[in-house]
Simulated assay, not measured.
Amino acid sequence: MPLGIVLRRAPGVTRWAKWVWTASAVLPGAGAADWRELRREGDTVEYHAATLVLELHGADTDAYLHELGAQTPSIYVILREEGEGDCPLNALLVTASPFEAQDYADSGEEIIEKVPMPPAFFAWVAEFVEEFHEEEVFIKRKRDKHRVDLSQDGIGDPRIGSLEDVYASPALQRRRMQ
């Protein structure tokens, strides 16, 4: 499903950050866009920065189920700083999986923004999970009942001839052999 990424630029609150960029919304089914201005209130501007395709995978239904059960189900937008100027962020990816978003957060190179999931999109993800999710049955591993400590299957290292040789230095053993 194509999702439009809406980025908000607001004035910074410190002298070191001129602007604060955040992902403020996603637009399900949006068309192509390249930093089209949507709304302006004073110095705060919202842009339809990009449209990315969100793909849901059957192997990730556990992650989607986890996100659907969250207090505020969200979509994660992965952004990367591309420099200065009017459009300093590049939208790389959009995902409904909190686990995939965490993988990107671990590198520290990308910016991960959490955007509340629109109701129609929530229904679409829930329907996907309902259709493809298969609950994995937990199987506890059991130890074998066989006791391996009751019998000795050998005396030890065949290179050690006597108990005195255990702590002997290799040089001393060489002298004995000559």
Rank of each mutant, 00 (worst) to 15 (best):
N90K: 15
E164W: 00
G29V: 04
R176A: 09
E67K: 11
K145R: 08
W19V: 07
H66K: 13
G69M: 09
G29M: 06
G29D: 07
D144N: 11
P119V: 00
L65V: 01
E67F: 08
G154L: 13
E134P: 01
L27N: 07
M1N: 07
I160W: 04
A123I: 00
D149W: 13
C87D: 03
F128C: 01
G4V: 05
W19I: 07
L3I: 02
D153Y: 00
I78S: 08
K140M: 03
I75L: 10
R174T: 13
R80Y: 14
K18I: 07
V45T: 10
G42C: 05
V53H: 12
G156A: 12
V6H: 12
A123F: 03
R143T: 06
P2G: 02
G156N: 15
Y64H: 04
T51Q: 11
W35I: 03
S151W: 11
I112Y: 11
E135L: 06
R15A: 08
S169C: 04
I155V: 12
W124S: 00
Q152G: 07
I155G: 14
T51W: 07
P2K: 09
V129C: 01
L56K: 14
E110Q: 09
L150V: 14
L52Q: 10
E82N: 10
I139Q: 01
V53Q: 12
G69K: 14
E84C: 02
L89V: 12
F132A: 00
A171N: 06
